[in-house]
């Protein structure tokens, strides 16, 4: 009970401080006005529609990234020649922030969903790839040897030994990738919204609140929604990890 109270001290202080700080200006958002705005936005469905648009793009881009990165990661992790020859490309492109290629992507795919999905796919690709490679490479060699001595064929070995052994690491990569993808979609929609008209999604909503309607309460509601979704995505994948790989204690 005392601990519970202790844990609430700082959040309460932050809220009170925010309320006091903001009371100087009529425009500045306050906890009370943000709650009002949140209720209004939930009621007219704008917030959920924006989140749905963004999440749809995230899942599309994420699915593309996973479908390419996991097979590629398995190939690179299990075949040294493939890894050695492709690693330079990975090491060259990995440090390029997804947002940096946004202008190019807009040039190629326009400023609609296509560009946003491409950015998400690019952002999620590398964490999934790198964790898949390291998962495959860190498989206990004696497990593969055990499968060999039991006479398993190569494809069976891959399916029943390599894949399950690397699965925890692949799922960790997917969790990290999904988190990065969600950040990337906000940035992409924000930047697209800022520079070239409408694209929809929660990120663009935030920019509209800033630039056109100057509704700071709505903006803060969007920020909180972004945080809640990020938290929920992370928890969902942690849960998926615990369910699908009960033997692993990652």
């Amino acid at each position: 009970m005392k601990r519970m109270a202790l844990r609430l001290v700082v959040p309460v202080l932050l809220l009170v401080g925010w309320q006091l700080l903001a009371s100087g200006s009529a425009q500045a958002p306050r906890p009370s006005t943000v709650v009002e705005a949140a209720i209004a936005m939930l009621r007219d469905g704008d917030l959920l529609a924006g989140l749905a648009t963004s999440l749809g793009r995230v899942f599309a881009g994420f699915a593309i990234a996973a479908c390419v990165a996991i097979p590629l990661g398995i190939a690179m992790g299990s075949m040294p020649t493939v890894e050695r020859n492709l690693d330079p490309l990975v090491e060259t492109f990995r440090p390029i922030a997804a947002l940096a290629i946004l202008p190019l992507v807009i040039l190629w795919l326009g400023s609609g969903s296509g560009a946003a999905i491409a950015i998400v796919a690019y952002a999620a690709f590398f964490p999934i790839l790198i964790n898949t490679i390291s998962g495959v490479k860190r498989i206990e060699p004696s497990l593969m040897r055990a499968a060999l001595t039991m006479g398993l064929k190569p494809l069976t070995r891959m399916r029943v030994v390599l894949l399950p052994a690397a699965l925890p690491s692949i799922l960790v990569g997917m969790r990290i990738g999904l988190g990065i993808a969600w950040t990337a979609i906000i940035a992409a929609e924000l930047a697209v919204g800022a520079k070239s008209g409408s694209s929809g999604g929660i990120g663009q909503m935030m920019f509209v609140f800033y630039a056109y309607s100057i509704d700071l309460n709505g903006m803060v509601v969007c920020m909180i929604a972004v945080g809640i979704v990020a938290f929920a995505l992370d928890r969902a994948l942690r849960w998926a990890l615990a369910i699908t790989v009960p033997w692993s204690r990652l």
Binding site: R3, L6, R7, L8, V9, V10, P11, L14, W182, T183, I186, A187, L190, G203, M206, F207, F209, Y210, L216, M219, V220, C222, M223, I224, V226, G227, I228, A230, F231, D234
Partner: peptide, 21 residues
């Protein structure tokens, strides 16, 4: 105990989402 809750509340809000504000 003092800091964990606020950190866990703020952390999921990506830095990029603060850009408009």
């Amino acid at each position: 105990d003092l800091l964990e809750l606020p950190v866990e509340m703020l952390r999921p809000i990506a830095g990029i989402a603060w850009i408009p504000l």
